[in-house]
Design a protein around this nucleic acid. Sequence first.
DNA 1: CTCGTTGGCGAGCGAAGCTATCCAAGTACC
DNA 2: GGTACTTGGATAGCTTCGCTCGCCAACGAG
Lengths: 214, 214
Amino acid sequence: MRLAELSERSGVSTATIKYYLREGLLPPGRQVNATTAEYDEEHLRRLRLVRAMIQVGRVPVAKVREVLGHVDDDSLPRTIRLGAALWALPQVPEPDEEDEYVQAAHREVDALLDQLGWTNAKQLTTVSPAYRSLVVAVAAFRRIGYTFGTELLVPYAELMYRTATLDLDNMEAYPSQAERVEFAILGAVLNEPVLQALHRLAQEEETARRYGFE
Amino acid sequence: MRLAELSERSGVSTATIKYYLREGLLPPGRQVNATTAEYDEEHLRRLRLVRAMIQVGRVPVAKVREVLGHVDDDSLPRTIRLGAALWALPQVPEPDEEDEYVQAAHREVDALLDQLGWTNAKQLTTVSPAYRSLVVAVAAFRRIGYTFGTELLVPYAELMYRTATLDLDNMEAYPSQAERVEFAILGAVLNEPVLQALHRLAQEEETARRYGFE
DNA sequence: CTCGTTGGCGAGCGAAGCTATCCAAGTACC
DNA sequence: GGTACTTGGATAGCTTCGCTCGCCAACGAG
């Protein structure tokens, strides 16, 4: 398959594919001669993964490169490789550790993790972007004047724990390591939109049930 | 409170506040004379809401203006006002209805809603952005070569339904209409990051429990 | 021989979200 | 009164991002 065909089958313009090649999001094709390169199904698949990350997941190009680097790094053990790929995904801006709301949020989130018994996650607080995102979001709620207790988050966390269990069960259905890592990334960039959409649909459904269409 | 103080208390630069005023995200202050305006706590609160939407929720400025327009529109009945505000929130790009994957995704999502018995949501498929987001995400999964049955989504949908129930219960705890609408928006722009963060933390916790830190 | 395609490269573009600068009118403090 | 500062308003510019375009010489296919 040559560039033109890769473009046609993926629906991505040749200019954009060239751009991705330049940016290292797509490995170069097999060079047949000085002016021809041959691409295969693996390129097509990778290209679609890149598009899904960028367009649906809104992952910046630089992050995509980083994530793919981890996917392709066979030297890493499973958990690290998976974690590395997921941790490279886009986050909320860094919390300002000076800010009083951020400090209070840290304490609250730590208390929440204790209450939940998530002892493993607790060990990761210094590195996990998910932990930092949670701190930022809680601090934003507080800053704006909404005060809810940590206990309000506990049922949400338990539902999310069950969701995560489903995720991993689904992931384990894939036989190869590479497929599993790829699936985990898709889970993060595509499953989250799915969850979000289901969440809003559920809100609409429940709102209509409670209040009708008034 | 004058502009400089509003800036200091919110941590937003005066230049940015002026920009928000110009863009209509913030109502003008009470004009004391030709060169002085007075702002109050309501301005501060609104400014913080705007910052939360833009920085944590990544809502584009134009969308923020639209959402706030609905929040302030007292003429609308409750459900519509809430729906209008939520539907104005950012989405995934419009699905290309010509695309075969999109068409297949439509059928699948419809089948899912039937299976779930979400008859109210089913009536909203032509207008609901959440429905369209779901279609786009499912189509993206398919395009990339992952084939999972609708039944895989059912348990996720049920968990999200329970999440939505929690949301509405929490919302009903607020007495005034304006607070409820504001809370619903915060729920959409801040609670979703919270859920997402809890989700990833739960994934990390469960991964560690299953596979250790290898 | 002609035409199309290739990789490579550099420049430019359009949207988004600020940021900087200037202005004339007015105020606060000494 | 003098001086420094603030105000709203306006305009221009900056940075980042994700492309998009145009040009090139080298090459192969018909």
